[in-house]
């Protein structure tokens, strides 16, 4: 048994092909604690979405396993809510019907009134009380994504998976919905696993940021602790003296080391280095996952 709420153990995905098998990612060992907000960043094609699909149970790993709350993930489940990048609302249903679609699936024995009341509560949480009866086509991109988020939270999953939920939104809308997401997450204390391309978004939202090397043969090279006090606000978090230390570290990784480390064999056992950029010359290293071989890593100085 893992000490983590969610753990990926030796996760590998290979797409077989005639010439050479395409290794998307290899030997990924990550754990998430309950209530933790974890972002994963990496360049396109490193297999982030594939990891997400494996976690959701929509795709199965070639080897390795995902264990959540003591049970192996073996298919899609209401315990893992997913918010897809392109909203994936059902266009023939109204905002309210889209959310109650999820609620009905979660609580089949509820009465109609209960379902409606519960759905309304979450739609109000994302500020959509005015647009309950609008269809997705009548809503802006930001509002659609809010409905999507409301649907995911309303089903009260044990783990929430967000696949670049704000990727298609303009910067202003993104900021507003990020604030809403923090607020709802603060109220519900869900465990969240989120894919993003946006370093600032990751720092604002996450407790921990996982950095992936470029694919193929991608791996999670580092797990960066975001040691900033909560609650964080978009406008004040950047004043924190540690903000730019973290940001520089992440950007440096994405610009430079994700490429350098690409295809490299991970240190001995595929472990991920845990880093806290806020601690100077932080050579605080430890291994995650089950393999407690605790090798001595050499850290690149910040």
């Amino acid at each position: 048994m893992s000490k983590y709420f969610l753990s990926m153990e030796g996760l590998t995905k290979i797409f077989p092909s005639k010439e050479e098998d395409m290794v998307v990612f290899e030997n990924i060992n990550i754990g998430l604690n309950k209530g933790e907000f974890v972002c994963i960043i990496g360049h396109s094609g490193c297999g982030k979405s594939t990891i997400m699909n494996v976690l959701a149970g929509l795709d199965s790993p070639t080897s390795g396993s995902v264990i959540m709350d003591g049970h192996e993930v073996s298919g899609p489940s209401l315990d893992r809510g997913v918010v897809f990048q392109n909203y994936s609302l059902l266009p023939w249903l109204t905002a309210m019907q889209n959310v109650s679609f999820g609620v009905k699936a979660r609580c089949p024995d509820w009465t109609r009134e209960q379902v409606i009341a519960h759905s309304r509560k979450y739609l109000e949480m994302v500020g959509l009380e005015e647009s309950l009866n609008k269809k997705p086509a009548q809503l802006s991109g930001g509002m659609r994504q809010r409905v999507s988020i409301a649907r995911a939270f309303a089903t009260n999953p044990k783990l929430l998976l967000l696949d670049e939920p704000f990727g298609a939104l303009d910067a202003l809308t993104r900021g507003i919905i990020q604030d809403e997401l923090i607020k709802i997450w603060g109220e519900t204390q869900q465990t969240v696993f989120m894919i993003t391309h946006d370093v600032d978004e990751a720092i604002l939202l996450a407790d921990r940021v996982l950095l992936m090397t470029n694919g193929p043969k991608a791996r999670v090279a580092e797990s960066v602790l975001i040691n900033l006090p909560r609650p964080r606000k978009r406008d004040t978090v950047i004043d924190d003296p540690n903000y730019y230390k973290i940001r520089n570290h992440l950007v440096h990784f994405l610009v430079k080391r994700s490429e350098e480390l690409s295809g490299s064999v991970s240190d001995e056992d595929g472990g991920t280095i845990v880093i806290d950029p806020t601690k100077d010359t932080s050579t605080k290293v430890e291994n995650t996952g089950e393999q407690d071989t605790n090798p001595q890593y050499e850290r690149v100085a910040l």
Binding site: A56, L58, P76, S77, V82, F84, N86, S88, F101, A105
Partner: peptide, 19 residues
């Protein structure tokens, strides 16, 4: 995407077909 929505909501085959 829509089929995946049905899957992640654990809809049965029949419900997926109709809903």
């Amino acid at each position: 995407d829509w089929v995946r929505v049905a899957q992640t909501h654990e809809l049965s085959q029949l419900k997926t077909a109709f809903q």
